[in-house]
Each structure stands twice: as structure tokens, then as C-alpha cells.
Write a protein that binds this DNA or RNA. Structure first.
Lengths: 335, 335
DNA sequence: TCCTGGCACTCTGGCTTGCTGAGTGCTAAT
DNA sequence: ATTAGCACTCAGCAAGCCAGAGTGCCAGGA
């Protein structure tokens, strides 16, 4: 019994602190929450919770606030909140008329930032290995060209290459014809083999190898290492609970991508439905005052979508929204 | 003479305030700046400058700070500072190995934010009308397809369309062949005319009109209505001089694009080399504490690149950096 | 064994007070 | 037109004080 009540006290502290952003004391708890015990009892429980490292006092004789560990305990026995009906509908209408992959990602991240009132991040979905549908070469100036590869699953990749030395128009056109004849419909190892042969053909243009590399790269599968974010203003908005000098490093981390990507990778490895990192659990100094809630989506659940905000955030609500958006994204992307 | 000295006093106040972010007083000015007059004289000048609305006191008997109008006067008689050699070199190395247009824009915005230590914004360059090089249709599910248009100046545009009803593979392939035969090498009015004929051909697939629209749209010229930004953390960094609750609206404006785009349009219309909007001159409440320095680049100088920061910013340096990046971008984009 | 009421103690935050120094406006003299 | 001098103002800081919220602990009751 008493163990159970201590849990309730912890939950009450978390919820109180999230709501007011002020340390919560035993008396206030006893009065507002129907815990059925007196403040003195709560004080005893608090002492134990503090020993366990779940809550802390900002200074002597102040109320308690949850530690990272406290939030963690709270989150671990938590089912994500159900999404309000209005939000559920918003997801459908907002995402349904996206025109291409970029648009889907863009809309998702914007939507999620509005639903959660946090910074939303979406990692680009992983791509499966695809077959070449069409290779197009476009000259740009005398010495450069753009390789455009359209592949069977509607990806379009482009890359500019250097031609090295002047190439006649005839050679150029011939290369386009040949590479299309060679690569069309192929992917993976067979594509590579065919292109290798083509590159080694007699009288081949000197930049054939570069083109071949670009084509292979464009059809390769795997996760694109890129995240987009939206809702940065939510970090700065009054009541976010982050001081001005804490938010600059966070913005840096968001823009730099690399930190964020590494973190998302780690979280993907955990493989939970919705995975949460709280404060110092992120292992990044810049993010030590923030939490991130993420869920996998897409084929093999290989990419992530998430929300990032102050440790003092509404975990149930955020988890619900993130999960809902992830599910919707999975549907759209798996086509 | 005395008129000239008043100018010098204003400049000194602006520079002092930009450097220290504290109101600057007559005595300090007389001592640190070699104005050759006593503090009392400076006080008289200050009184006149205040009457003219160029400077203000935050409170009685404090030093003076420049008003928006004061900054304006300062900027108007200012030549942009020359760019440090190190920066000049950075621009070359940083931008030279971009692989495509997106990459150029992305690198530019990042570079500019580092050079100026402000938020950098880059509007996507305007595009000239181009001719069709290749149209590719890729099926996605039974009822959708993706139209990919590669045009002569290396643009690649894609758009998903609804097929409406089931189409046989033969019809689909035929449509691809036909639309390429029809559109290849054409642009503008001639492209439209040719496609209209194609759409009206007997036995035509029902979605031919949609494809034609997409192809025309993909080759149309004009400015893409899109800006990217980088360096948001510079707003929040200590000493930016913006309070926490001022920066949230600014971040919102940046993400919403529409406010920023309208502002950039207005500035483009001014047609100066480097154009500056200071504080309330932006006419947007959210940006009333910030200034934006912008320069046009690209064909017809039709797109803008700029830096946005607190009104209290280093105008000469920022103007120099923005102009340099704009010039470099012009070179790269005009190919 | 667990809970509760009571009590003494601690500490922050807000408020007031007093002081200092930077900065001003004005005037009379150069 | 400039300067020196003087009286005045006011933010910012430090110190002191008070009230209120919150705590820990103890002894008594279920």
C-alpha cells in the first residue's frame, strides 16, 4: 500500500510541477490532491523519494521538484494519453494532400510541432534499394554536368559532376543513350556489374565512372541522414521553462544535425513503441535540460519522428501525439 | 562645422551602444572619442539630436541610445565595410564545391550566418523559363503517379497526380512516350500549345490534362516563394540584446515564411545595392526589435539574401558580408 | 507498524531604505 | 559657439526586515 502511495505522490509532484513550474510542497499536495493522507505522511514519503533520487529540493525548505530519474520513473509507468479527437482529425486533413515526399515530411513536422507545442523533428524516411528508371545528363557550362536519376519507387536524385575535359556533343549524347540502355530496370549488384562493364567499354568517355557512381548511389537504399525541425519558437516562448542561455545550444544542436542524428539512432535501437530520453539521459550537454520523445515509423520502423522540449513537459500528451503522427506517417510512406 | 560634429556624435553613440549595449553618456564620449570638445558641448549636441528624434534616453539622466531613426541616419551615410580577407577566402572555399542548387543555397545560408553572427536568410533564386528535356511518369499505387520533369537548365521538378481511374500499362507507357515526343525541347507558349493539342488527341488518357499542367508549371520561370534560414541560435545567444520573449515571435516569423517573403519583396523593390530595414521600418510587430540587411542576387537581381539581427547590430560588417555573399551567389547561379 | 498533529526551524522572495555614481540641464563666463 | 560649474535625478546595488511556505522530527494514537 504505502509503496503504491509513494508512486502516487511522485506522480502528483510531476504533474504539479509540469503544470505550475514551481516546486510543490507537501501541504499543497495534501489539499489539492485526493491522496487521503495528511501532509505529514506525504512529507515522510517525500523524504524516501528524495533518498531514492527521484525528487530534489532546489534549496532547503522549499517544495520538491522531480529529478530526471523521477521523470523517468513517471514515464515508465505511463500509457501515452489518447489523442483528442480534434487532433486526430487534424492529422488526417493536414497530411492527406501532400504532393511528394518532401511535402509529407514538411507537413508532418509542422503539424507535430503544433500538436505538442514543442520542437518537432522528423528524420527522412529510409529508402529501399530501387531500380533505375531513367538517367538524364544535363550539361552545365563546358566542364560540368548534372546527373539526374529517376528510380522505380519515385525517387529523384541529382548530383553534379565534373567532366574533366571537353566532351563533344555526340559523345555526350551517346553516353546518355548507353547508360540508359545499360542501367534501365536494374538495381543493386546487377546494376553495379552492368555499369562496370559499360565504364570499361572501348572508346568510353573519361567521366563514365563518375556517372556510374552517381547512379549507383542514387538507387542505394538506407536511411538518409537528414532531419528537419519546426516550432523552434516553442523553446523561447514564455513559460517554456528554459532560460535564454540554455536555448542557444539547443538551437545549435538542431541545426547541426549530427548530434540530433546520433541521438535518434540510439533511440531507434531501443525499439520501443515510443521512446523517451530525459535530460541528462540524452548524453549531450546542450540537451541536458531538455527531453525528447520519439517514435519510429516507416519500413522496418527505420526512421524517427519526435518532439523535443524542456524536461518539464507534458509527457503523456506528447507521447500520444508523437505516436499518432508516427503511425500516420508509416501509412503514407509505406506505399 | 557644428553640424558635422553632431553627425560624429551620433556615429559615436551608435558605435558605442552597439559595442557595449549600454546607454552612452556625454562624459564617456568626450573621454574615449577624440572629438576635440568637452562633455558639455556634447551634451548640447545630444539635446539637439534628441529633439530631432535620432537618439533617446531609456530613463531620465541615463546615457543616450540611438532610435531606429538614428540607426537609419547612421546607415545612410555608411559605406559597407570591406570584408576581412579571411572571410573572403572562406566564401570561395565554402561555396565552390556545392553539388546542386539546393546545396548552394544551404551552404550560403550557413556561411552567411557564421560570417555575420546573425540569422541568415536566403530566398531561392528565381528561375528562367526553361525547355523540357525529359518527362518521366512513375506509378505509385493504382491511382496515383508522380510526374518528374527534367528541364534544360538542370531543374528537376516533381509533382504527384491522381489518375482518377485505372489505366492500363499500355496506355500509361504510350502516354509517357507521347508526352516526351510532344514536349521535348519546347518551352513557354510553344510548349503549352503543343501540349494542348496532345491532350485533345483522340483516345487520350483522361489525366493527360493534369500531366500537361504539371509539365508547364515545371518549366515556368519566376521566383520560387521560399526562404531558408540558419543561425537561429544567434538570436538567443547571450548578448544578442533580445529578451527571451522577443525572440519567440521572430522565430515564428522565420518559420512562417510569408511575413519574411513579403518583407523581402518590399526590400527588393527598393533596388539599392544593399538595403536595410531597421526596427519598426519592417512594419511587422514581431520584427520591431530587429533589423534586416539584404542584397539582391541572381538574374535581374530578382532574389534576395540577407541577415537578420537585433537593431543593435554591426551594420557596416553585416552589410559587407551580405553584399559579398550576394555577389558570389550571383556568379554561381547565373551560369 | 503506520499515520497524524504539533512545533520549532529554515529559507526564499518581496519590500523598504539608504547610498553612490553616472548622467543630465541650465546658467554664467569666456 | 564653447566651456566650466553646479544642482538635481534616478538606476542599481547592498543591507535589513518580514511573511509565508515548507521542512524535519517527535510523541501520541489507531
Amino acid at each position: 500500500m504505502t509503496e503504491e502511495r509513494r508512486r502516487a505522490v511522485l506522480h502528483a509532484i510531476v504533474e504539479g510541477y509540469v503544470a505550475t513550474h514551481e516546486p510543490v510542497g507537501s501541504k499543497a499536495l495534501a489539499e489539492t490532491r485526493a491522496l487521503g493522507v495528511s501532509s505529514a505522511t506525504i512529507r515522510n514519503d517525500m523524504a524516501i523519494l528524495e533518498e531514492e533520487g527521484l525528487i530534489a529540493q532546489p534549496y532547503t525548505s522549499a517544495g520538491r521538484i522531480p529529478t530526471d530519474k523521477g521523470y523517468r520513473s513517471f514515464v515508465d509507468q505511463l500509457a501515452a494519453a489518447a489523442l483528442p479527437e480534434a487532433h486526430r482529425r487534424a492529422i488526417g486533413t493536414f497530411l492527406s494532400d501532400a504532393v511528394d515526399l518532401n511535402d509529407v515530411v514538411e507537413r508532418s513536422v509542422r503539424l507535430l510541432s503544433q500538436l505538442t507545442r514543442q520542437v518537432a523533428v522528423v528524420q527522412y524516411p529510409s529508402l529501399r534499394e530501387s531500380a533505375v528508371r531513367r538517367v538524364e545528363l544535363v550539361r552545365m557550362g563546358a566542364e560540368h554536368a548534372l546527373v539526374v536519376v529517376v528510380s522505380s519507387d519515385a525517387r529523384v536524385e541529382q548530383q553534379s559532376i565534373a567532366l574533366g575535359e571537353a566532351t563533344s556533343d555526340e559523345d555526350f549524347e551517346r553516353a546518355v543513350r548507353e547508360v540508359n540502355a545499360t542501367a534501365h530496370g536494374l538495381g543493386g549488384a546487377r546494376l553495379e556489374a552492368a555499369l562496370t562493364l559499360w565504364v570499361q567499354a572501348p572508346d568510353q568517355v573519361p567521366w563514365a565512372g563518375t556517372v556510374a557512381d552517381a547512379v549507383v548511389a542514387a538507387t542505394r537504399g538506407g536511411t538518409v541522414e537528414r532531419v528537419v525541425f519546426a516550432g523552434a519558437s516553442n523553446l523561447a516562448r514564455a513559460g517554456s521553462g528554459l532560460e535564454a542561455d540554455t536555448i542557444a545550444p539547443v538551437l545549435d544542436a538542431l541545426e547541426e544535425q549530427v548530434v540530433l542524428l546520433r541521438l535518434l539512432h540510439e533511440m531507434a535501437a531501443e525499439g520501443d513503441d515510443v521512446s523517451v530520453r530525459i535530460g541528462a539521459e540524452t548524453h549531450y550537454e546542450a540537451l541536458s535540460r531538455t527531453s525528447i520523445v520519439a517514435a519510429a515509423y516507416g519500413r522496418d520502423a527505420s526512421s524517427l519522428v519526435g518532439a523535443l522540449g524542456p524536461t518539464r513537459m507534458d509527457y503523456p500528451g506528447t507521447m500520444g501525439a508523437v505516436r499518432a503522427v508516427a503511425r500516420y506517417l508509416s501509412k503514407v510512406v509505406e506505399l
